[in-house]
């Protein structure tokens, strides 16, 4: 549809803006995948470290040097969150309304929770960095493992909820 010299999608946003949001959503998803991989490797490595690398897939997964993932996890989390916070406006304007119209309360509530746990995980990052920086001291090993696990659980939850909501009202819908 053409109005006032600007192309519009079936909804109300200019087509160019929709394309930018789509690209940002893809970038957000790709960074989330990388973050998921890094934090999962680290969590497995911290709870179930391999004493000896045998060459098997599981052994390789367990024997990663967990500490090397710390900065990557922090950078990926912040970048994913920045892009997510930009596309979040589209969720509030278009997607949430649809969920409400169709009375899809569980996905809507799950996304509300995603918003809050992502914020809590963002606040956890300084502690996460602090406990990994002191990785050589064993007296904080349990705290380090628990903080890492909490961040990992939040990242997994957010990834799955984002994926489900995208399936309901995402690309091409």
């Amino acid at each position: 549809m053409l109005a006032c010299g600007q192309e519009f999608e079936a909804g109300h946003r200019p087509l160019g803006e929709t394309r930018v949001l789509t690209v940002l959503l893809i970038v957000h998803s790709l960074m989330a995948v990388a973050l998921l991989g890094a934090i999962t490797h680290q969590t497995v490595g911290v709870w179930w470290p391999a004493k000896k690398r045998t060459g098997s897939f599981v052994s390789s997964l367990r024997s990663v040097p967990s500490m090397t993932y710390t900065n990557a996890v922090i950078v990926l989390f912040i970048l994913t969150m920045i892009v997510g916070s930009i596309i979040y406006t589209e969720y509030r304007v278009s997607i949430r309304v649809t969920l409400q119209d169709y009375r899809m309360y569980v996905p809507e509530g799950a996304f509300e929770l995603k918003e809050h746990v992502a914020s809590i995980a963002l606040g956890l990052l300084p502690a996460y960095w602090y406990y990994w920086r002191q990785s050589l001291s064993q007296d904080r090993a349990t705290t380090r493992a628990m903080v890492t696990t909490l961040v990992a659980c939040i990242v997994w939850y957010n990834f799955l909820v984002g994926h489900v909501v995208n399936n309901i009202r995402g690309f091409g819908s």
Partner: peptide, 14 residues
Amino acid sequence: RAFPVFSAAFAVIY
């Protein structure tokens, strides 16, 4: 050493 305090306080204040 204030970083863990920041994280705990952030959650409560949020």
